[in-house]
Amino acid sequence: MNQPTILDLIGTGPNGWGMALAAATVMTILIAVAGFAIGAVIGVFGAWAKVSGGPVTRGIAGFYTTVLRGIPDLLVIYLFYFGGSAAVTAIGRLFGAEGFIGFPGFLAGALAVGITSGAQQTEVFRGAFKAVHPGELEAATACGMSRSLRFRRILAPLTLRHAIPGMGNVWQVVLKESALVSVTGVVELLRQSQIGAGSTGLPFDFYVIAAAIYLAISTVSGGLLQLGEKRFTRGVRRG
């Protein structure tokens, strides 16, 4: 029997895995986007706690960023996956359910990726906030803006301007971290490639395809981020 070539594998023919790989790519992007969004929310609150919190909130936020940036992401994913399953099983037992209940891998993965990226985004937002010139905020107050208006019109856009390059870095990390979620059995790009590799005996081809798709996603999203950066810094005078 002829070995299918790499083009057969990514096609939609009888030997093709094209549709499965496309679905898996969508799943990878979903995990990365969900994780990134959770991380952004945590990051905003973490930065807020670090910038204007009291000693206790500052301490908690500092502990969180130190710990989550110092331990491997895989360990966090295991914590959420197995810890979540243990918690769900215990709750199930309270309501009279029998046996083991698994925690959804997607949720565990997105939460784990979100919490690790949240630690990084806390630092990104904190740095970006520090880069906002105090004079801008003073001017807003002098114009009679209320705190919420000042936040919405001045502080948030200016912080975002400084934060975009850092957020871009975090996004690239999150995208690659999403591959670790494959250990929970979620059929994302890497898991799908493992399945394909197992059933065709062509691991090299499948992992090369996966690597190429990851490269494509990171290149395209990198370009989009650069566009966003351009848009948010159009008011900055250069040179």
Partner: peptide, 14 residues
């Protein structure tokens, strides 16, 4: 641009 895990799999299994 590619996840480390993919690189590990590519070398070990691929």
């Amino acid at each position: 641009g590619t996840p480390l895990l993919v690189q590990i799999f590519l070398i070990y299994y691929g």
